[in-house]
Design a protein around this nucleic acid. Structure first.
Length: 263
DNA sequence: ATAGGTGTTTCTTT
DNA sequence: AAAAGAAACACCTA
């Protein structure tokens, strides 16, 4: 599930659950989610420390400790949960951080496509160098700079994390639909006015989604109609049947009337 | 029982 | 050279 709004929600979960509290014990129940570090060193390096700054960039969450930094990526199914240390763990709880005051932060992940990295600050900085500007923080000028000079399709550009960090499949479709731009428009063909509208819409969609800690499946948004049965739900704006297809390697929904096809 | 999913990487093809 | 496409990763649901 996690796109920028979900990860921002996890940042708040981590802050409320763990910030400032001593990490008493790290229990790795499935080492399959650890990358570049084993269970032993993860525990040894974190136990006795506390989480300090909690930084989100795109879909990455970085938890600083004053020593090593824990880098979380949630893949498709990862999440953070705050529980009581005595609560029975969930089947998909892969790593448990027991904190002072009997709280327990849990990395829960069904599919284990990503997980946790442990890095020194220089390495954490290098990770962020490979990411484009955060979609929630990017200025209009940097947004323009990211999109100009691209030759591919618009949806591929919006979901390319090295160009702009944080947008996933749902957000890209929602933003394009609200902007009335077809996912297959070539990025370079946008007028200045269209880019301005795209930027404004992206900010509005992100603001609403961050408040909900997800892309909300609202009836008056495209997202509310993705899982409609075969014939395709009507566009909430004009009633035309929504189309589904493939773009940037992912299932993509759009309204053939509101989002005119290029060519 | 096969397909597909709010993600990314890597390899191959255009 | 850049971009699109397909497969792989792991697991569950329809």
């Amino acid at each position: 599930m996690p796109e920028l709004p979900d990860v921002e929600g996890f940042r708040k979960v981590l802050a409320g659950c763990a910030r400032g509290r001593t990490i008493e014990q790290v229990d790795v129940r499935d080492a399959g989610v650890l990358h570049g570090v084993g269970a032993g060193r993860l525990s040894r390096d974190l136990e006795g420390r506390r989480f300090t700054e909690l930084e989100r960039h795109g879909k990455w969450l970085l938890a600083h400790t004053g020593g090593p930094t824990v880098q979380f990526h949630f893949g498709m199914t990862g999440r953070l949960v705050c529980a009581h240390a005595d609560d029975a763990p969930h089947a998909h709880d892969r790593v448990l951080f027991t904190l002072a005051g009997s709280r327990q932060l849990r990395y829960r992940d069904q599919r284990k496509l990503k997980g946790l990295w442990l890095a020194g600050d220089p390495e954490a900085a290098r990770l962020l160098d490979e990411q484009g500007p955060d979609a929630l923080a990017v200025s209009r000028a940097d947004f323009d700079a990211a999109l100009t000079g691209r030759r591919g399709r618009l949806k591929a550009a919006l979901t390319d994390q090295s160009l702009l960090a944080g947008l996933g499949n749902l957000l890209a479709d929602e933003i394009l639909w609200q902007s009335r731009l077809h996912p297959s428009r070539s990025t370079g063909s946008l007028t200045d006015g269209e880019r301005a509208e795209l930027y404004r819409t992206m900010r509005r969609v992100l603001r609403t989604s961050v408040r909900a800690a997800q892309v909300p499946p609202r009836d008056d948004w495209l997202t509310g109609h993705r899982d409609a049965p075969d014939p395709g739900a009507p566009c909430p704006r004009c009633g035309t049947r929504l189309r589904a297809g493939r773009a940037a390697g992912r299932t993509t929904y759009w309204c053939p009337h509101c989002q005119p096809a290029p060519d």
